[in-house]
Amino acid sequence: MKKNYRGICLIGAGRAGMIHARNFQRSVPGFRIVSVADPVEEAAASACRELEIEKYYLDYKQALEDEETDAVVIVSPTKYHCEIAVCAAKHRKDILLEKPMAMNARECVQIMEAVKDSGVKLQIGFMRRFDESFQAAKKAVEAGEIGSVVLVKSLTRGPSTPRPWMYDIKKSNGPLAEVNSHDIDSLRWFSGSEFEHVYAIAGNYRCHEAQKEFPDFYDNVVLNGKFKNGVLASIDGAQGVGYGYDARVEILGTDGVIYLGTSNENNMICANRSGNQVRQFIKSWKNLFEDAYLKEDLHFAECVLEDKTPCVTGVDGLMAVKIVQAGNLSIAEKRIVRLED
């Protein structure tokens, strides 16, 4: 019997993976999660129970052999992205690939070539582009409401400390990749240009247990640079800040400024006899960009069903990875790094 839906395999059953899975299972018409692939059986089985499906794999390759799988959502650790995405493309599965796209530019190109050869869709998971306020800001910039863009600043600070595997920069590419990939993409998007050069400085201020074995690890980073069209750039990233999840953007123009992002969990303010005011800070990225994730998944579905090109492509993923590499090189060698054309 011919099925009336597109079957998706979730590859990587962590927090971000489950956000996508819930969306496709409940809120994306014409699509259904048919299986989960994760090498940790407990995670795979737990995801299946929540999604009310039965099929899971400990090896993603077996999932790709499943005829019920038409597309994959890849949310594995970054070091596996290239291997999994290339294999998925060869099996002619459409691909929604979470950021960072891959570990280096060479791997990004491998993915893009495999996708081109197979003719499948590839969308990179820069969900902030689908956030309502970000889209409104993009329209305002394009309409010239703040004149010409002069400077784009973006920050992302996460409340939780890094997982131990992230301490090895060679395996994780550090916070510039894991935390600030979204900031890099936002700067490219709002500036309408590509980076000309970057200079980054960083340090480890909170993860003291990592200092002996991984002296190069940093949990705080500042990356400044300039785009080819003259727009200035600034990124502020941090892990383990404790106070909450903080993501904000400022776009300064010749005739005005745009502020994006909120730190408030809700609009409630509590005041008491002490004279102090209390406002709840946002605790998780899952709350702040919940709607953006859904719109991102709906866009992927539309592109698959209507044979459209995703608005966030492999080129966007590749350019973000190039900036991560350049930033890490700048930190290591304490110098300005120019981007290759």
Rank of each mutant, 00 (worst) to 15 (best):
N4L: 08
R6D: 03
I8S: 02
C9A: 14
A21Q: 03
R22Q: 14
Q25P: 01
S27N: 13
E42G: 00
A44K: 03
A47W: 10
E50L: 12
I53G: 13
Y57V: 08
L58T: 14
A63L: 05
L64S: 02
L64V: 01
T69G: 01
V72N: 03
V72I: 14
C82S: 07
E83C: 04
H91M: 09
H91E: 14
I95G: 04
M101Y: 05
M103T: 03
E107F: 04
V109C: 02
D117W: 01
G125Q: 08
M127R: 10
M127G: 01
S133M: 08
A137R: 06
K138M: 07
A140E: 12
V149E: 01
K171N: 10
K171S: 08
E178C: 13
D183L: 07
I184R: 04
S191E: 14
E194P: 00
E196F: 03
V198C: 02
G203T: 08
K212D: 13
E213M: 12
F217R: 09
Y218H: 14
L232K: 15
I235F: 11
G237I: 03
V241F: 07
A247N: 14
R248Q: 15
D255H: 03
I258E: 09
G261C: 10
S263R: 06
M268E: 13
I269N: 06
I269G: 02
I269V: 12
I269F: 12
C270E: 13
G275N: 10
N276I: 03
V278T: 11
R279P: 00
R279F: 12
I282T: 08
N287H: 15
E296A: 06
D297S: 11
D297H: 05
L298R: 15
L298N: 04
A301P: 00
E302D: 12
G314R: 06
M319W: 07
V324C: 05
N328Q: 11
I331E: 07
E333H: 08
D341L: 13
